[in-house]
Design a protein around this nucleic acid. Structure first.
Lengths: 103, 103
DNA sequence: CATCTATTTGGCTTTTTAACCAAATAATGG
DNA sequence: CCATTATTTGGTTAAAAAGCCAAATAGATG
């Protein structure tokens, strides 16, 4: 585990932030099953195409997604197969329940 | 892996968002070594105490942190020991490098 | 070449998040 | 009970993120 310099902390936070939005998380979860093109992801998310495109760009720039153009479509896919482990941890935490106060 | 309903997606995203800020991530990384009180975390982060307090509240409400009051201090700790796996995945992605375009 | 389809970009508005300061609360010790 | 220390809350302001629309770009196809 690398030590947390300010720089790596920023970079890590960018990756995490890229997944910390409901639509983007849904996209990532869905891409675990395989690549998809933007228009299919648009249907999945149910937002404006331009909005989805911006989410995808952000995720790609964070290093979370790869993309490849084939014909008219651009296919996005996960850059890493570790997302399962990532989500397992998230789910453990998410189920912990919201504590409104500590004492 | 539970299916991603809108509700669970929201909840998961909240957990992830709680870690997707440089200061909060630094706090979480530091707490892997053990609990700390707010004033120590304030020194670590180097922000106003009230700012740090709000970060901690947000993380606690997301389910990421627990806290316990002892004497005058409140000690925060990680709610789950899975953060290592989480960060391993994040680091893999963070090292992937920023691709500015796909083609 | 003109056109069609898929996607990205730019611009703008609204919402959310972050930060600080000052004031409130809570437990402790004199 | 008063003062002190640790922390949270409320309020305000500034900065960042998200969404939509319209326009631009890039291949594919007739």
């Amino acid at each position: 585990m690398p030590k947390a310099s300010a720089k790596t902390s920023e970079r890590r936070a960018a990756v995490i932030k890229a997944l910390g939005h409901p639509s983007r998380l849904l996209i990532a979860e869905t891409l675990m099953k395989g690549e998809m093109c933007v228009c299919d992801l648009k249907d999945l998310v149910g937002a404006d195409m331009s909005t989805v495109s911006k989410h995808l760009t952000l995720m790609r720039e964070a290093g979370v997604l790869n993309c490849e153009k084939r014909g008219l479509n651009i296919y996005y896919s996960l850059a890493c197969d570790c997302l399962g482990d990532f989500l397992r941890c998230v789910d453990k935490l998410a189920c912990g329940g919201k504590k409104t106060t500590c004492c």
